[in-house]
């Protein structure tokens, strides 16, 4: 559990650097670093990275959406298959989660492969 939390916390924490101009896909790289450093199993890396990416993107989206009272998310939802406001927020979180998860899994698998060499 500690490793899972560590992967997630590192992914989310390092992912904050995206706020200062790093590209969005850097989250995947931070997930990879978290996975390499702390994950002990595939599941820990994947779900830890997922939780970190999801929480980071979800928190920022929620903050923006709350301040905006859903004006934009409602319109974006209508643009994307008629998603409701919370669907847009959730979808954002899901994308962040997947980026973090695949990144962390890759980091973990990289370490495992490195260790066998």
């Amino acid at each position: 559990m500690r490793n899972f939390i560590a992967v997630g916390a590192f992914t989310a924490g390092a992912g904050l650097l995206c706020t200062v101009g790093l590209p969005w896909w850097a989250l995947s790289a931070f997930g990879a670093a978290g996975g390499w450093l702390w994950a002990k199993t595939n599941g820990q890396s994947f779900w830890g990275g997922f939780a970190g990416g999801l929480l980071l993107w979800l928190a920022f989206a929620l903050g923006r959406d709350w301040a905006n009272e859903g004006i934009l998310s409602t319109r974006i939802g209508a643009l994307f298959l008629g998603l409701p406001r919370w669907g847009v927020v959730g979808f954002t979180g899901l994308l962040g989660g997947l980026l973090g998860a695949t990144g962390a899994l890759t980091g973990y698998r990289a370490r495992r492969w490195w260790q066998t060499r």
């Binding site: 995206c18 706020t19 969005w24 896909w25 989250l27 993107w57 920022f60 989206a61 923006r64 959406d65 301040a67 905006n68 009272e69 004006i71 934009l72 998310s73 974006i76 994307f80 298959l81 979808f91 954002t92 994308l95 962040g96 980026l99």
Partner: peptide
């Protein structure tokens, strides 16, 4: 592509740091 339309690149558009969320102005 989505039907006759082109969806924007999801990562660039949905990421909350430089995507559309930045245009969600405080009410």
């Amino acid at each position: 592509p989505m039907g006759q339309q082109r969806l924007p690149a999801l990562g660039r558009f949905f990421n909350p740091f430089s995507g559309f969320w930045q245009n969600a102005e405080p009410v």
